[in-house]
């Protein structure tokens, strides 16, 4: 485990906790895409099925369980507990346009044609685009609450740090996994536009709003 990966995991965890706390404290999930959160629950579930098949470390198992639990807590809050505050009218991204292509791609391009491996690959592909419903929602309403911006920023930083982790692993372990790297690159690129807005606006104390 290198520093980039650890900080990446930490950043991912911080992102999730920020969002959970935001919803819980404000008793509202306004501005949050339930579809993106549901997709993340699918991503974690399909990727971490290896919890049942092999043990890597207590850190690994612990983080996986926490991510899965948090993602389901999020879905429960949005679609059940605070359903009345969910902004479904603006959450109109068609998720089948993400799920179907990534599922097909996972069948075509994978390391090993076995159920667990295909599901793992699917989760990697799906994760890279799972934030799109949320970004679409922000662009549709033209703004995001500052705390939502922090969430998106921390989530974007997570995969960016993983890119550095993969460069590190290639350099010092001679190891690389093209599936993870390409998907991670796509995922990071999707955040670039948002990173720009975050740095130029949110960090200067302004609310994130898009020009009309």
């Amino acid at each position: 485990m290198n520093i980039f990966r650890f900080l990446g995991d930490l950043s991912h965890l911080i992102a999730i906790v920020i969002l959970l706390l935001k919803i819980w404290k404000s008793r509202s999930c306004a501005g949050i895409s339930g579809k993106s959160q549901a997709l993340f629950a699918v991503v974690f579930t399909t990727r971490y099925l290896d919890l049942f098949t092999n043990f890597i470390s207590f850190y690994n198992t612990g983080m996986k369980v926490v991510y899965i639990a948090c993602s389901y807590a999020m879905v429960w809050m949005i679609y059940s507990k605070f359903k009345a505050t969910y902004d479904g009218n603006h959450d109109t991204f068609r998720v089948e346009f993400l799920v179907a292509p990534t599922a097909i791609l996972a069948f075509l391009v994978n390391h090993d044609f076995t159920p667990l491996e295909i599901l793992w690959t699917f989760s990697i592909y799906l994760e890279s685009v799972a934030i799109l419903p949320q970004l679409f929602m922000v662009s549709k309403t033209g703004e995001a609450e500052t705390i939502t911006s922090h969430y998106l920023f921390a989530l974007g930083v997570y995969r960016t740090l993983y890119l550095f982790n993969w460069i590190w692993r290639y350099q010092f372990e001679g190891f690389f996994d093209l599936i993870a790297i390409v998907a991670g690159l796509v995922q990071t690129i999707l955040y670039c536009d948002f990173f720009y807005l975050y740095i130029t606006k949110v960090l200067k104390g302004k609310k994130l709003s898009l020009p009309a």
């Binding site: 991912h12 890597i56 470390s57 690994n60 983080m63």
Partner: peptide
Amino acid sequence: QEPNKTHDEL
């Protein structure tokens, strides 16, 4: 068969 190495990542 040994699992792919990135599978130790989150």
